[in-house]
């Protein structure tokens, strides 16, 4: 395969993350909508983990761990929001709130832990 000679040879044209960002989102949505804890947790991890990977790849953050820690705040905020909504509707949203919150905390721990203890091992997730 010969791609446009002379044009943009200097660009790397592959990244493993986009596929998993795109898989993580629907899995997380399904999990949260139907209250399926494993899907919610796994989907969120996949989604935000891959975003952290992209941020690292772009050099927007200096390590994937840091990206993960920063993004965990978004997840925690989402969990808190669902927790709040639980109070405002008749539907029981607690399981969903806890799974999202739990995922956020997990990500935060992984991010902080990785940053402290696994400096040279870049996580794959």
């Amino acid at each position: 395969m010969d791609e446009n000679p002379g044009l943009s040879e200097e660009y790397r044209r592959a990244s493993p993350w986009p596929l998993f960002v795109a898989l993580g989102l629907p899995i997380a949505e399904l999990g949260i909508l139907f209250g399926l804890v494993p899907l919610a947790v796994g989907g969120l991890l996949l989604f935000f983990g891959s975003i952290a990977g992209i941020l690292r790849e772009n050099s927007y953050v200096s390590s994937t761990w840091r990206g993960l820690a920063a993004l965990s705040l978004v997840v925690v905020a989402l969990g808190l929001a669902i927790w709040y909504w639980d109070g405002t509707t008749q539907s029981d949203l607690l399981v969903r709130a806890y799974s999202v919150l739990g995922t956020g905390v997990l990500m935060l721990l992984a991010g902080v832990g990785g940053e402290l203890f696994a400096q040279d091992a870049e996580p794959t997730l």
Partner: peptide, 19 residues
């Protein structure tokens, strides 16, 4: 040279098969 955000471009496509 390419799209402005090549990775977002890829994400946009890969959302479609699950859709």
């Amino acid at each position: 040279d390419d799209m402005a955000f090549p990775r977002i471009n890829a994400i946009a496509f890969w959302l479609l098969p699950p859709a």
